[in-house]
Simulated scan of single mutants.
Amino acid sequence: MSLPVPKVVNPPPSSTAQVGLGKKKPHPFWLGGVAATIAASITHPLDLTKVRLQASGDKRMMESIKKTVRTAGYRGLFDGISGTWLRQMSYSMCRFWAYEESKKMLGANEKGAPALKLAVAGSMAGGIAGLVGNPGEIVMVRLQGDFAKAPEKRFNYKHCIDALVRMVREEGVSSLARGAGPNVFRAILMNASQLASYDFFKASLIDSGHFQDNIYCHFTASFAAGTVATTVCSPADVLKSRIMNASGPGSNSTLAVIRHSLRTEGAMFAFKGWVPAWMRLQPTTILIFLILEQLKNGVDWQRGKSWAFI
């Protein structure tokens, strides 16, 4: 006599499982901006030093840091941080959103997407974000570089909102587009080299069989992406800082800045501040992607709960 086979009742699928049956629900577009803001806040002193090396007469990184501490105290290392927040929540939020949308358009969001498609998607995102974030970029550079100037040449902005209002009132609305050319060019280079190379290195590491999709893989891929991005972006970064920090008539001409810099410093001016730029961009890149990946994991975990709201 055979015993009856008990009927197995499968539990109702969770929201995460339901999403997995179809296409995975995309993560919120603002996660990139939050991750970049947290990372930039941590590395702000290095970014401040990089800008002052590029836009002032400071020669060495440690000398510039000591000068800042001597003249403004340790709090001086966080001069202009409100400009950094404004820049990250405009430029960075936009670039992560535009990158994902560009990958969808180009069909580069599938596994094994070629590096060229990723680079094109990054370039498209950089062009859009560079325009959207240009006012925040100017404010950040001016707030950071102000105390490196002689007192009579300082802008003396109180914070990022004061800077935006005074720029429009004193220099006209067109001042918000100052240095947009090199800034957009740099943003294209940055996103093509940083975002695209991160995705490329991450996929390559996982495909090699030596890494899994975990924090060790994210760290290694972001380390490689940070080095690539620093080298590719250095020339445009130097030009952007010098043009945005200038205040005299005709001083915002890209060709004029290039000619003057070549005449006084030689071709290597384009890589001035590379070491602090690498020291700043490297931890920033690593932090951005580590934080972003953890935020994504947090969203996925939260979506699996009955009280999911993201």
Rank of each mutant, 00 (worst) to 15 (best):
I161T: 15
G112S: 07
R178M: 09
A224D: 08
K117C: 07
F200V: 10
A150V: 13
V168W: 04
A129T: 03
V139P: 01
I138F: 05
V139L: 07
L131R: 07
F147W: 15
L131T: 12
G209C: 07
I138Y: 05
A148P: 06
K202H: 14
V165R: 03
H218K: 10
R154Q: 03
D146Q: 05
S174E: 15
A196N: 02
H210Q: 15
E171L: 14
L106W: 01
A115F: 15
T220F: 15
F223K: 07
L176W: 13
F200P: 00
E171R: 13
V184Q: 10
A121K: 01
V184S: 04
L164I: 08
I138H: 04
G181Q: 14
P182Q: 08
S197G: 01
W97C: 15
L205V: 01
E152T: 15
P151S: 12
G179M: 01
G136F: 03
H210K: 12
S102F: 00
A98R: 06
Y198W: 14
L164M: 08
D213P: 05
E171F: 14
A196M: 07
E137G: 12
A225G: 06
N191R: 00
F211M: 09
A225K: 03
E152W: 08
E110C: 15
E100M: 12
Q144M: 14
A224M: 13
L176V: 14
A98K: 02
K103L: 02
S102K: 02
V168H: 07
E101P: 04
D162T: 03
L164Y: 05
V141K: 08
Y198I: 14
I138M: 02
A98V: 02
A108I: 00
N214V: 08
G145N: 11
I161W: 14
I215P: 05
G136W: 06
L143C: 08
G127W: 00
S197Q: 03
S102E: 02
G130S: 04
N191W: 04
F223R: 07
V141R: 11
K111Y: 15
P135G: 10
